[in-house]
Design a protein around this nucleic acid. Structure first.
Lengths: 356, 356
DNA sequence: GCCGGTGATGTAATCGTTTACATCGCTCGT
DNA sequence: ACGAGCGATGTAAACGATTACATCACCGGC
């Protein structure tokens, strides 16, 4: 079932391939009658333009590569969706790669994406700056970093800054009477890991409070590490009365450990998370979280990349994350949607209820 | 910053382009000395093979297209990840498209994927069979359906059958004393929607129980519809005492409505979901769910597609979903490991292939 | 009536590979 | 010593599009 080519169309329409190409790209004047015949021939043959050949000639594939850190992390998933959406609007197809937080995998993807001549690359760089990434950006390939950045490299980056939100969160916790705040951070080698930790420490320092080192746990942005961190924190002689997780997966792990110990949120310990994911709202109590403007992040990244592809310079974009207060730190201030007032409530903390 | 081409490499190595190509594809005999020089030249120039030109010549892109139903649905996300993983192993890159459950969007993607000459297509077809999809499969393009199927078209499909699991779930609920079981189904036009509903009705019928039409709500696999369905169910003069949601998003909506009314799970109403997602485990109580072998689904789909690309015929693959009992229907049985062989519960997601 | 201009079209080169085929030395068997 | 056979290499033709350039017909102004 050989696909028809321009040649076949040309023959059937009784014109030259040049004319066919012209009507296909309508970038030159073609007589109305010929245009009609070509279109008819295209229709008849079910002709579909071969983007591969076209790309070879035009040196543009209409494709961008997206390499994300961990496809199982809802944050990246949502990001991928946003990128996908905006790319579609901009006329790009997206080839996606999951680095799984491993530099070698990241490089594998970067390599095949370059071989495939993507027009540009959206990269959530892994911890280390690999030689390949350095070469790539230095060779002039359009690259934009997303979510994370890498120092020492002049690459436009689209990211969200959560320092203010973290500060606000710390204020919120202290305002609710919490006194022993702990933070479960991501890996310090990742920009997103370090920044959040710093912001937390800063927020405490700014208020003249000490940063107790035993309240600073380092995880790896995965659920298991969050759980382990919580276990250590709760085993402390003087456990924290509030915990902030550095990302949504570690919050999940934290939640686990807290449940496993039969502790209540926020009664025994307050919990909040960096990253907001849809189902945080459906937890009991709903989780207070710092929401990144994920959609906007994706959009801006694609737009920035498109600019780079067009040869224009772009600035780094820094958006702001914002605090979303729910019930998991105590004293929720959002009034619930009205429904039937609560029926019988069991005395235990684990019954489904929206805070009154 | 023009990329080096085979020609440049050939010149630098003092050989012909044919020789360069031969060492690059090591499919013919090349003298050791020449091979070394070519490799050296490749290194020196930082030569990267142009996959576009290569594809044009070889008529293979090493790329597959994946069009999923809704990228925000964790089920599809996980599926995409599995596909991505397996594709990587098989040496394929994945171009992903999010149909957002809209036939026109699906077709948009199919079209550009075909233009880009993907070697094959993995498709979670939307409700309707569009002419484009029909033409595509009839024209001989390798296509494999994933998760869902479309009647009247001879396309191999990789999917999971949940009928047994649903039957088991119904048994479980009845065993716990629930008497009024409701089901929130997906759209009947989707194979996955209809099948689950049928299985539910069947499970009741098989036990001689009536299927009360007011306990059969139809949603659209989105959270909002789940919530609305629950609202209607709970407003019934005689509301159900157990609800099964047809997918994870509708379960989310259901959860919402139940919480909003201050009802307790499983005290006031039992809740279970088709689809298992990681955080169900972290709800309080953890949600009983039917887990699809998502990883395996993705793997098998890619393998099937690879076979089709290689020109071989493949059979439809039907895996089995399995029930995961947690606490949301009452009487949580922790530690399901040993003891009662009540149901032959395979330990892993990855098991239970059933030929069509 | 001639000539330059203009608009429509065709011819052919080109993008960077792969690969069929031709070529060229060698070696080996007789 | 000679041709067959073989291994290594090169030449050039594809693949299917786009596009610079040439061509051609025709028109109107002088």
């Amino acid at each position: 079932m050989a696909q028809a080519s321009v040649k076949d169309v040309a023959r059937l329409a009784g014109v030259s391939v040049a004319t066919v190409s012209r009507v296909l790209n309508d970038n030159a004047t073609v007589s109305e009658s010929n245009r009609a015949r070509v279109l008819a021939a295209v229709e008849r043959l079910g002709y579909r333009r071969n983007a591969v050949a076209r790309s070879l000639r035009t040196d543009a594939t209409g494709t961008i590569g997206l390499v994300i850190g961990d496809i199982l992390n809802p944050f990246f998933t949502e990001l991928a969706r946003a990128v996908e959406d905006e790319a579609r609007i901009a006329g790009y197809a997206v080839v996606i790669g999951n680095a799984d937080e491993r530099p070698d995998r990241q490089d594998d993807y970067v390599r095949t994406l370059l071989e495939r001549r993507v027009d540009g690359l959206l990269l959530c760089p892994t911890a280390e700056l690999t030689p390949l990434v350095r070469d790539t950006v230095e060779s002039g390939t359009p690259v934009v970093f997303l979510d994370r950045t890498l120092h020492g490299l002049d690459v436009p980056t689209v990211r969200a800054d959560g320092a203010d939100a973290i500060d606000e969160l710390v204020g919120h916790l202290l305002g609710l009477g919490r006194e022993r705040l702990a933070f479960v951070s991501g890996p310090a080698i990742l920009s997103t890991g370090r920044e959040r930790t710093d912001a937390f420490a800063c927020a405490l320092a700014r208020r003249g409070l000490p940063v107790r080192p035993e309240y600073l746990e380092e995880g790896d942005f995965q659920a298991a590490s969050g759980r382990a961190a919580l276990a250590r924190l709760l085993d402390l002689p003087e456990p924290p009365d509030a915990v902030v997780a550095g990302d949504n997966l570690m919050a999940l792990g934290a939640l686990d450990e807290i449940h496993a110990r039969g502790l209540s949120i926020p009664g025994d310990v307050a919990l909040a998370s960096y990253d907001d994911v849809p189902w945080f709202l459906h937890l009991d109590p709903p989780l207070t979280a710092i929401a990144q403007p994920v959609q906007e992040l994706g959009r801006r990244a694609v737009r920035a990349l498109a600019e780079r592809v067009a040869g224009r310079e772009v600035e780094t974009v820094t958006l702001r994350a914002r605090l979303v207060v729910r019930g998991s730190c105590g004293e929720p201030r959002e009034a619930p949607r009205s429904g039937k007032p609560a029926g019988p409530r069991s005395g235990r903390h684990d019954e489904g209820s929206v805070p009154a």
